[in-house]
Design a protein around this nucleic acid. Structure first.
Lengths: 238, 238
DNA sequence: TGCCGAATGTCACGCAGGCGACATTTTTTG
DNA sequence: CAAAAAATGTCGCCTGCGTGACATTCGGCA
């Protein structure tokens, strides 16, 4: 169920939340009916699928590639809310709720997206109640993560914010390899800084400290975590 | 549509998000069918409807009163994610998604709650697609607010975090009286501090400053805002 | 293969705001 | 209606981390 990553304590630790591969939870005809009403679009690396402020009349499903959902803040910061992986839905929030896009959706790499018009999607939901429920699950899952991020921002210091970010990402998007967890999300220090609300330099410092202590390593922008040790680390307050 | 509060620029300013009174958007028989499968429960002020960690097999609709949804953090902080007002749904996230409750739900005052079992609710959704959609809207709305809070935490200083909190609360739960907006949520400085991630003393200081400048006043723990001025205030970065 | 821009490291300085320690006021409760 | 508890004000010290200013390394493209 959780692709390659067995979350150690999903019930007690809200950090570990299942990924939201929706397709895999659809029944075959829920899936094919969805395909039937959608248009497939291809995007190059770095292209925008939509911008904040756009009207937002479509829902999207990611078929391949990776998409970054973020807001940009009053000065220059890209606050990344989450990454989308294949099988995930995005852009639903603003379609269902009226007012325009609140966030930007930009590809991290070449991507293939299934794009569905608001009205058609609404009809689809009305006639596929199972699918509705699955999608609610995905929303719920995301809410949970957002709540977590919030708590994290509110009462942890920079060090622990970074550690928990790593754990959160591992839980959603990591693959276990031996006793390591590999994240295949390419992230710059700047992006990490933007996610946890700190300065780029601080990220550099904290990360190299963690590397030094052998808690994680970085292989061309891809992070590898000795999950267990890092977990212990994060439960300490300091 | 928005009870008594005309949001000035809902499209561009994500701060202004409609409240989520679900009942008012239901059709009469969507409503009565819902009542039919639920049990009404009464709670005294300060009672818990559920705790973080509970299994979470019920969805709740608030009929009257006020409920505080929060997580408590590694040391003592109550991080309030949102308040629920009559007509709002809560506890959905954890029912739809498996693992237990991620948050606490505690009444702020005597409250009347419609409580619905997971399985019954699922059936209800399956047979009432209109209702499903309305509920998705509510979730979407909440996601948006959470996203906003996040950005806010990540790149604003304490002063502006507090100001924006006020604006956010006004937008969702304020009632316009003349050119003021009244919030009828009783909040202590400590609670405010917990919401924006700062120290109680800092809240005291910032708030008295705002009072001094005539941007807001406090009438027995209820906050009144000169909305327009405060809005201007918040667009400044300092 | 070599160039150039982007990403990473490292350092010292300064200050926003956390924290403790109070006095004072308001609210609750017996 | 008094006593206890909770909430609000006010202050000063001290530290976590933001900021600017670099040097260094990486990696994509001509």
């Amino acid at each position: 169920m959780l692709e390659g990553f067995d979350s150690p304590c999903a019930t007690t630790d809200p950090v570990f939340t299942a990924p939201s591969d929706i397709f895999s939870k659809f029944s075959p005809n829920e899936f094919s009916d969805l395909l039937a009403i959608g248009t497939v679009r291809n995007y190059e690396k770095g292209e925008f699928i939509y911008h904040a402020g756009d009207p937002g009349m479509n829902v999207h499903f990611l078929r391949s590639g990776r998409v970054k959902i973020y807001q940009n803040s009053t000065l220059g910061r890209e606050v990344i809310l989450w990454f989308c992986f294949p099988g995930e839905i995005f852009g639903l929030t603003e379609v269902v709720h009226s007012a325009g896009r609140a966030v930007n959706a930009q590809t991290c790499e070449r991507a293939e997206v299934l794009c569905i018009a608001r009205s058609q999607f609404k009809d689809y939901l009305a006639t596929h109640s199972g699918a509705s429920f699955v999608i609610m699950q995905a929303l719920a899952c995301r809410m949970r993560v957002l709540g977590d991020m919030l708590v994290n921002l509110i009462d942890d210091d920079v060090n622990s914010r970074i550690v928990k970010l790593m754990l959160r990402l591992s839980a959603c998007h990591g693959t276990r390899v031996g006793n390591e967890v590999h994240l295949n999300i390419r992230m710059t220090h700047q992006e990490i800084a933007d996610m946890v609300g700190t300065a780029r330099q601080t990220v550099t410092k904290v990360l190299s400290e963690l590397k030094l202590r052998g808690l994680l390593s970085i292989e061309n922008h891809r992070i590898r975590i000795r999950s267990q040790e890092l977990l212990n680390e994060h439960s300490r307050s300091s």
